[in-house]
Design a protein around this nucleic acid. Sequence first.
RNA 1: GGUCCCGUCGUCUAACGGUUAGGACGCCAGGUUUUCAUCCUGGCAACAGGGGUUCGAUUCCCCUCGGGAUCACCA
Length: 556
Amino acid sequence: MYSSTLLGRLTELLAPDGYIERSESELRYPSRVLTDGAEVMRIAPSPTGFVHIGTIYAGFINERIAHQTNGIFILRIEDTDKKREVEGSSEMIIKALSDFGLNYDEGPNTTAKYGPYFQSQRSKIYLGYVLDLLRSGRAYPCFATPEELQTAVKDQQTKKLRPGYYGDWALWRDKSEAEINAALDKSLPFVLRLRSNGLHSKRIVYNDVFKGKMEVPQNDLDVPLLKSDEQRLPTYHLAHVVDDYLMGTTKVFRSEEWLPSTALHIEIAEALNLPDLTYGHFAPISIIDSAGGGKRKLSKRKDKEADIQFWLAAGYPIEGIKAYLLGLANSNFEDWWRNNPSEPLDHYTVSLEKLAASRAPLLDMQKLEDYCKDFIANLPQDQFEKRLLEFSEKAGWTRFVDEVASDIVYSNNVFAIERSGDKPRKDISRWDQAYDQYGYFFDSLFEDNFRKQGRSEFLSDLDEATIFGAAQAFLATYDPTDDQVAWFDKVKAAAESVGFAIDNKAYKADPSLFRGNVADFARILRVLTTGKNRTPDLWTIMQAMGVSRIRSRLSN
RNA sequence: GGUCCCGUCGUCUAACGGUUAGGACGCCAGGUUUUCAUCCUGGCAACAGGGGUUCGAUUCCCCUCGGGAUCACCA
């Protein structure tokens, strides 16, 4: 215990602008009144750059559990590291959560009572707690320089000891008041450290919601609780414990990387005489390391998929991504999704047991695309068009958007092609593929982006005369009122009339007798009208395009 | 190195000691189709290894091996 003089001096230095006594904080943030089973969940990202898919994953899990229990979902911005903070990233986090439909009940821009929700704005609260620790002797000032700390670690390494600031290695743990005062006299920078009571040789037991009974060595590290920076912001460890207590978080669900520091967090809560928090650590999303080949966490620097912007820019439908993430979290979700293709995802109940079984799931883009294809294919027509146009605008496809707007009826027909019925087409998994999928229906886009490219790419094996002959033969009998059967009969007749085989067996027996088979003939028509060799059914396309457009394209 | 988490098809996983180890994505083959995307049918493909316990081990225990996380005034 320090003398009141020293305590006063430290308080003066740490909180020149005052602080909020912890009893006052606890009064200001009363415990919550919740319905039975309601969980208060939170995510606590730090604004250090782009929004990581892992943040969305963690956010989704927490949001679901909060909302499926009629509880509360909180967003807390952990901006205690001003050095690493990147301008604008808080806004990006808020935007991303909104884009993904992860609506928080409490957080920035809400009127909720447990704020502020930016940790940097809560510094006086933390000060109150840390001062309390100082008074009870569970915290002490440490003036060790980075160099001293470093040499200590090196020393430990050469002696094959566990690195860290603990026990005899805790330089300032047992310094006298005189020594502390002397350091203060010199205005040396200092942090406040936890005076740990733990012993590495002893173990603590606690229960992790996902991992079950955990039995690990006690924390014995005298970690910094308060930084030496001017604002006297707390470290994550202190801020997390204080905030989740004050905000009434009922379950702290976070990624597994936090598992090793949980013993520390438990000790901090204990030192503060706070009730135990309930923890659950789930496996983060991983990716194959292209360099090493091993499994590792998605990394911000190495993986473009880590950035949520990558998914948004490509136009992966949010629900497809969410469905995929849900599948990673809960292996049984997949069956539900197949059985309930048009149900909102929120109707699925996330299972903690299944989440516990999820092991560092590897991001599988192919499977994700499969989910997205399914989702887009099953969208109601009006939704499909709405989203398609929204993306087109965002992507800056101005000509595409203009063309669509210039003939709404035609566009509606085009976008409806083969999308009805039990088995709608699954052509696109992301909206950015829509330009290629639908662009050729519009004349100016066809002319600029499809016609010539298609000709040279898909018809280079045929001479001009054959191509024109085929087109003319088709046009000679083409009647837009023909049904599909009649239409195809005419296609075959036209094909035969210009030397294509309509009997595929005959063609295969001796291809030299023919210019090609019906498939080749159809290919000519297809490429001439669409510029592509892969399209929906040709008859349907022609029905949508209309006779004059068909004539013009086939005659060109 | 210490500590902790974790090992089932290529990937995500199912299996509450007894199954021909199942499904999904992907892949391959065949079918349907004027081309594709689909769709249908079929196929390839896994219990990391070694010891125990047990009538019986993918399942329980131990060891080895392997992967991951973490050991900052970052979160």
